[in-house]
Simulated scan of single mutants.
Amino acid sequence: MAERSVLVRRIRIFLAVVIAGLVVSGITAFPLREEVALGRGILRSIGLDTLAPEFVGWVDRVGEGLDATAVAFPFIAYGTDWLAFAHLLIALAFIGPWRDPMRNVFIIQWGLVACAGIVPLALIAGALRGLPLGWQAIDVSFVVVAALPLALALMATRRLEALPTASAASPAAAR
């Protein structure tokens, strides 16, 4: 019984990492203009504009694009509102395996498939949209951030499934 509770605890920790990442990603997709403006100021205040001018130049370009779009076409930001909402809903999907990992293992597997889809999306759409390769690499890095705890949760769930059930292990079941 102790091994079962240890595995469930591990699964919940792994899923908590994924859920937290999705919630943070979702919440931070709402105030993009404000975040980029803050980031631009921070990058300049720490002198990164002299150390990595191409990086800061890209962040400036993103900020200028967000500002110009907000003035001319404010409704475009509605798309990122839906992106934020989707992240929050995806986070909620992982409550199922949090509560009952064996019954909802398919959600963990689905999450791993979604992670695999990030790579071609970031590389193909990023190239089509003119994103620098380094920025695409940052997006692809989210695969590791989410797929690693999901893979660990899946392995722990498989170990949990392999354990004998409580009724089969009890002396009363043998009678």
Rank of each mutant, 00 (worst) to 15 (best):
M102Y: 00
R99K: 14
L66R: 04
A68N: 12
L7D: 04
M102F: 00
G57W: 09
I107M: 14
I90M: 09
S170Y: 03
V56S: 07
T50Q: 11
C115S: 10
L66S: 08
L160Y: 00
F75L: 10
A146V: 09
A137R: 05
E54T: 07
H87A: 10
T69I: 05
F55Y: 11
Q109Y: 10
S45Y: 09
L92T: 13
E34Q: 11
T157V: 09
G134C: 02
R33S: 15
E54A: 12
A169L: 12
L83K: 06
A16N: 06
A68I: 12
R61E: 13
G26R: 05
V59D: 05
P74E: 14
S141W: 07
L154Q: 00
S170C: 10
A77F: 14
G79M: 08
P132S: 07
L22M: 15
A72Q: 10
F14Q: 04
A147H: 04
V18I: 13
F30Q: 10
V143E: 01
D49C: 02
A114I: 07
T80Y: 14
A172G: 00
A127W: 11
G47M: 12
G126L: 10
S25M: 12
F55P: 05
T69L: 12
V36E: 15
E54G: 02
L88P: 06
L128T: 02
Q109K: 15
I108S: 01
A52N: 06
M155C: 05
I95Y: 14
V6H: 08
E161D: 09
R33L: 15
G41C: 11
I76M: 08
L150T: 02
I46R: 01
H87E: 07
L152F: 03
L92K: 06
V140I: 15
V8Y: 05
V143A: 07
S167F: 08
V119G: 02
F75R: 03
V36K: 05
G96D: 11
L133H: 15
T28I: 09
R159C: 04
D60A: 08
I95M: 15
P31K: 07
L152A: 15
P149F: 06
P74C: 11
A84C: 05
V71M: 04
V144A: 15
G41S: 09
T80S: 12
V145M: 13
V145H: 04
L148N: 02
R159D: 08
P101M: 11
